[in-house]
Amino acid sequence: MINIFQPSLGEAELAAVAEVFATNWIGKGARVDGFETAFAQHIGVPRPLVTSFNSCTAATFTAVELAGIGPGDEVIIPTVCFVGVANAVAAAGARPVFCDVATRTLNPSVADLDAVRTERTRAVIVLHYGGHPGDIVAIADWCRDNGILLIEDAAIAIASRVDGRACGTFGDMAAWSFDHGKIVVTVDGGMLYVRDPELAERAPTLAYLGLEQSSGYDSALRQRTRWWDFEVSSFSGRSVTNDVLAAIGAVQLRRLPEFIARRREIAAHYDEALANVGGVACPPPLPAGHETSYYMYWIQFDGDIRDEIARDLYEEGIYTSFRYPPLHRVKAYGSDARLPCAEEAAERTLLLPIHQALTDAEVERVAETVRRRVQVRSAR
């Protein structure tokens, strides 16, 4: 089976893990600090503004808490988004309000946000679909002009930029993912960026049980306390990562340029191979100054053949999918919205395999199978 997403892990990652094992300290320590430092440099922000987590979802929940979002508040979310984002808002007692997206890019515009804004709108959480930045510059300006917080779901936008500026740094906060299917992998993990230094200072405390004093003999001596004493400032859970996973992440982050280069090649191959297939549309070209992470490659079909094509490909050993099913259709959120562009996209869009471990032969096999199966289905 050709996987849709797949990590690239090798000897360098194993060696980094072995080094951690040799220290006999596998918990949160120097490697975590080093990974956070490297990530802050990668997105171009001061080191104290980033905090690592055991998942992007945990980072998103923390962002909502830091933002003070709660009962009576509304948070606008593009309906084509990860379920964990809506869960974070709903769990805080706030109301997720879903907006439409463009059919071709699956990213929202300012007009989409403005269409559902009310006097209770407290924040916007926006996804960069497939790694494409979308209208993030205009959205950030709109949020500032209207006194609305902007949280970026940058889970799949680790290398995405606009005019050299990293996606995730346009808003007030942002979260990235390093789970097993992402580009940079730590098996499971996430990172949170918080623009406000005072709020950013609270993030590590919220990630570790609300403890005011971290454990450790040296820190206790500096504070003139016993190292086993502590105080609690919030009733928080525990969502920290550890040195084993951070060691993997540090190696993966150094390899990111080669990962993106290979994904760019694969996307270009698909663009060329599928350009003249009748009834198939490839992703739209990026605007000037935009850089994508190439996390997803999606095609869209004319007519009602997407599900059949997906089954055809699976039968030939090619795994495909659609992400993300529209959240306004999920009963738990209680939405009665009608969002026609997102609904159309959800019925026409299919994600093809794209990851740096794909061989040229596998990429051509995917493209050839799509061409052949579309011709057969369209002829019926």
Rank of each mutant, 00 (worst) to 15 (best):
D172N: 13
D188C: 10
V376M: 01
I43M: 01
A281E: 14
E344M: 13
G134M: 06
P71L: 02
F61R: 15
F98P: 00
P78K: 04
L351Q: 15
A203G: 03
I77F: 07
I139K: 06
A367Y: 02
G84L: 05
D218C: 05
F21W: 10
I26C: 09
V374C: 03
F53S: 10
A267P: 08
V137W: 01
I158F: 08
R238Q: 09
C167Q: 06
I151C: 14
L253Y: 11
H132T: 10
I26W: 00
E347F: 05
V330E: 15
A175I: 02
G93L: 07
R254A: 15
E13Y: 01
C56N: 14
G27Y: 08
S236K: 02
P285Q: 05
M1F: 05
N276V: 02
A67I: 02
G68V: 07
A250M: 06
A15N: 13
E364N: 08
R255Y: 04
L351N: 15
A337E: 15
E13S: 08
I26K: 09
R95E: 11
V50R: 10
L14Q: 10
D312Q: 12
G27H: 08
A273W: 06
G168S: 11
A157F: 09
E344S: 15
A22N: 12
A15M: 10
G289K: 06
A175S: 14
M173I: 05
T169K: 09
G68C: 07
W298L: 07
E265F: 07
A203Y: 01
V187I: 14
S52E: 03
V80A: 04
E316K: 12
R226S: 08
I136D: 02
D179L: 10
E11R: 11
S236H: 04
A86N: 06
L211P: 00
I4K: 13
A94L: 03
I136M: 08
E65C: 11
D304K: 00
I136E: 04
S215Q: 06
H328I: 12
A361F: 08
R238I: 02
R262L: 04
V89S: 12
D271E: 13
Y297H: 08
V162P: 08
Q300G: 03
T241M: 07
R95M: 03
V370G: 02
A92Q: 13
P353F: 09
R372T: 05
G164E: 09
V376E: 04
R311H: 12
N54V: 09
G70Q: 06
Q300H: 00
Q252L: 09
I309S: 04
T225I: 15
A18S: 15
A220T: 07
D114I: 01
V330T: 14
A16F: 02
G190P: 10
A275I: 04
G317I: 03
A361H: 10
S215E: 04
P287F: 05
H290L: 02
